[in-house]
Write a protein that binds this DNA or RNA. Structure first.
Lengths: 158, 158, 158, 158
DNA sequence: TTTT
DNA sequence: TTTT
């Protein structure tokens, strides 16, 4: 009876931090920036650009993709949800931090933009749409030419 | 390397059609309307309301929710993807129809609006968000039953 | 070159607070809850429901809609963006709070759910999609000015 | 009281077609592909990749961006709405075609990917959020002062 | 802290 | 064909 969805496209600010829990579960943390263009209003008021930094958290398979292919500057598409968690700061005060919990993550740009990336690099990891579970081939070959092999084009509608 | 996402909030036009395949997989079909408000532009031009009808397809668990709780007039939130499929019409011509393949579906409105619905009725069915979460800390008591029925089930299409 | 989009469907926790700035601009603040269903994993682990509270801010026309029609318990659809702003707490420490800045807001449920609402009450206020077009006609001419009126402007705080 | 939103990230199939109506309004048409990864299910069933082609329509400013910077292969983020329109085919039969009417469009990838693009080239065009664009708001009162000064900054909420 |  |  509710929906909590976030969609971001932006650039990663620093190389992500990835750690492994005792049970070998991977967790990645990084921030990504989105910028709203500034402008000058009719009455001459200038509104500058506004950059928002989002703290993103990714788990498991997604965290591994992050570990292997995401780095400072990478442009990403992220689909996830908002989560606010609390923690006690050094003075014992309760603090809150809001994060974007990633459910899906896609590396954007052309292959050439993600040099470190193998074919699977450019691919996507999805904690949700993954139809099977075991998800066999991560994000394989087929993806490389992301585009080419679409002979369906011909028989396309209209 | 790609995203195909649709989000709709609208009202169902007729009672859905639900059928079961040989393998007992349920499939539901129904249409939902979204309406854009019309307006009068500065130059006096009147633009009328515009209603769009979307053909929605739901499978498995989602189809069962549809079967049990969705009917003519029901207000729904739908998350899914666009799919265009072809078929041959009676004259042997190839025709195309574009549908919204539902991955998540939520009944909107108060419980009282969905009389036939039990707690789970008002709930959600989600083929995607599944067992994601991790984050421990709940978030706070007060909200607990904020919204009842939601059993998940997730599911999956082919 | 970036996208920052949030979509929420949830229930308002308390009656909203609406105030007017010196320039008569309205600002509304309220929180809305979204709940993720808990579940029991295959290994018997129970994950409880998890409710997230989102601080929402609406300006101008949207704030007025909030003032007139939104109250504790109201189910809303909200489209907006994430914004984190800082402030100094009583001890002079910099604190951060993340909010959802609403660009579009829709009251959900049947009319009967929103008793105080007139036709437009139940309607939507949209700081962005606004005059969108409708123009039935195919693709051409008639549609032409389809767009004009859209400038939008709206928004933005700070 | 309704929502009709589409979000796509994909690659353009061919160079777009852009034409100008008598009133100098630009209209762009092009198709973009999104691909769902195939997979092998637990029972050994192989599900191949599935590519979906979306017909996109952009107007005015957006169409000009398309004209100048989008070409075959360009990776795009598109936000828009679903629209189905009808037309009569050569045999006088009513046919329907579903399109994505773009409200926002972003070129993805690094600058180097969009060689022809100047700073604004790589930028975004938004028929909705664009605050600047003069053009006053047609639509509704509430929106009127839509923008003006933003001195509110000071008197911000909380 | 990123990007344009 | 729905809803407001």
């Amino acid at each position: 009876m509710s929906v909590n969805k976030v969609i971001l496209v932006g650039n990663v600010g620093k190389d992500p931090e990835v750690r492994y829990l005792d049970n070998d579960v991977a967790v990645a943390n990084f921030s990504i920036a989105t910028t709203e263009r500034g402008y000058t209003s009719r009455d001459g008021q200038t509104v500058p650009d506004r950059t928002e930094w989002h703290n993103v958290v990714a788990w498991r398979g997604l965290a591994k993709v992050v570990e292997n292919y995401v780095k400072k500057g990478t442009q990403l598409f992220i689909e996830g949800k908002i989560r606010t968690r609390s923690y006690d700061d050094k003075d014992g005060n309760k603090r809150y931090v809001t994060e974007v919990y990633a459910d899906n993550l896609q590396m954007l740009g052309r292959k050439s933009d993600n040099p470190g990336s193998s074919d699977q690099a450019g691919g996507a990891m999805n904690t949700s749409q993954q139809p099977a579970q075991n998800a066999p081939s991560p994000n394989n070959a087929a993806q490389e030419d992301t585009f080419l092999g679409n002979d369906e084009s011909d028989d396309l509608p209209f």
